[in-house]
Simulated assay, not measured.
Amino acid sequence: MSQTAPIRSHRKPRQSASKLALRAGVAGGVLSTIAVAGAAGPANAEPLTEKTLEMPTLGSLDADLASAVSASAEASQQEALDQSLAAQEKAALEKAAKDAKKAKAEADRKAEAEKAEKARAEARERASRTAARTTLSAKSSSSADAVGGSSSSSQVATGSAAAIVAFARAQVGDAYVMGGTGPNSWDCSGLVQAAYRQAGIDLPRVSGSQSSMGTSVSLSNLQPGDVLYWGSRSGSYHVAIYVGGGKYVGAQNPSTGVVERSLDWDMPSGAVRIL
């Protein structure tokens, strides 16, 4: 190196005064702007460094969303269940109303049928009684008494006996009912008691007491209106009314009802005369 060559200095070159002035002006402007902004803000504003904004985490958002979805699903399911139950209740009510209407119609039909059958049965019964009375009244006399052999003229009922016999015969065809006292069903002593009431005579209610009334008579000397009995006189189990011509009328049993039969069909044990 030449001794005369210039030696480069290691010092940093000085900046010119104009550049320094420019930098100072810029810095001053920035500081002034910051000062103005601070003065314009709220007096009690907190430094940004002293307040931290809390943001929801991703986990809490997922939990809230899942809860909302679950609640919505449950509400939809409950609504569907309520609608299903309402539909079932409506269907059940409609079916019950339909069944009730059908049952009522069937009951009405049966009631009408039973009413019509009852009317026909009553008509047949009246016709049968009318025919029986006509046949009996046409017989002015009969052959000798089947038991006593007395003449037919002695078997014609008169006075109170006629009323008793006529009432008893009018009930032929009625039903037999234990304890029955009329007007359409009888037991044996109920019929005898009612027949004697036509003659103004009150008899006891049961057969044993009825057969103990009046005077005992022979079966060969019977007259219309006499009370026939089966068993002992004071302990009879069945009674009937002798109507003449060797016949009697009595409420026999549930299968036959009130009938007029010949004495030899079921021979009585004895008889009493109360008239």
Rank of each mutant, 00 (worst) to 15 (best):
P13R: 14
D266S: 14
V177Y: 12
P13W: 03
E94P: 09
L228P: 02
A111C: 06
S141L: 00
S9W: 08
G225V: 03
S232W: 09
L85M: 13
P56S: 07
P56I: 04
Q252F: 01
E89Y: 04
G38K: 06
S9C: 09
E50V: 09
L31K: 01
K12D: 12
S152A: 15
P56A: 01
S255H: 12
R205E: 12
A107E: 11
A240Q: 08
H238I: 01
L136A: 15
D99C: 07
S140I: 05
G244H: 10
E46M: 13
A39C: 04
L53H: 02
V272K: 02
G28Y: 07
V227T: 03
S236A: 15
R233S: 11
D64C: 04
G270F: 00
P183R: 10
A24T: 12
A73S: 13
C188A: 11
G182I: 05
A121M: 13
A271I: 10
V239D: 09
A63I: 08
G182V: 01
S32D: 06
S255K: 05
A194L: 03
G225D: 04
L58P: 06
G270N: 00
V243R: 06
A39Y: 08
A123Q: 14
S152V: 04
A17N: 14
D174H: 12
D226L: 04
G245H: 02
V172T: 06
D174L: 05
E79T: 14
G59V: 13
L20P: 03
S153Y: 10
S70M: 13
G200L: 00
M178D: 13
R273N: 12
S143C: 01
P42I: 09
S142D: 11
K95D: 08
R124L: 14
E94M: 05
Q210C: 08
A43E: 12
G148F: 03
M55N: 07
L85G: 09
G148R: 05
G149M: 07
S207D: 05
Y196P: 04
I34C: 14
E74H: 13
A168G: 11
L275W: 05
S142G: 15
G190F: 04
A37L: 14
K101V: 05
A157W: 00
G173F: 08
G208Y: 15
S72Y: 14
L275H: 11
I241E: 01
G214P: 07
L53G: 08
L81Q: 14
Q155N: 11
A5W: 12
E112D: 13
V249F: 11
D145Q: 07
V36E: 13
H238Y: 05
A166L: 02
A166F: 02
V156S: 06
S142K: 10
G149P: 01
A24D: 06
L61R: 10
Q252C: 01
S234Y: 10
A97W: 02
Y237N: 12
A73F: 08
S84E: 15
S269L: 08
I241T: 05
L228E: 02
T158H: 09
A107M: 09
K90E: 11
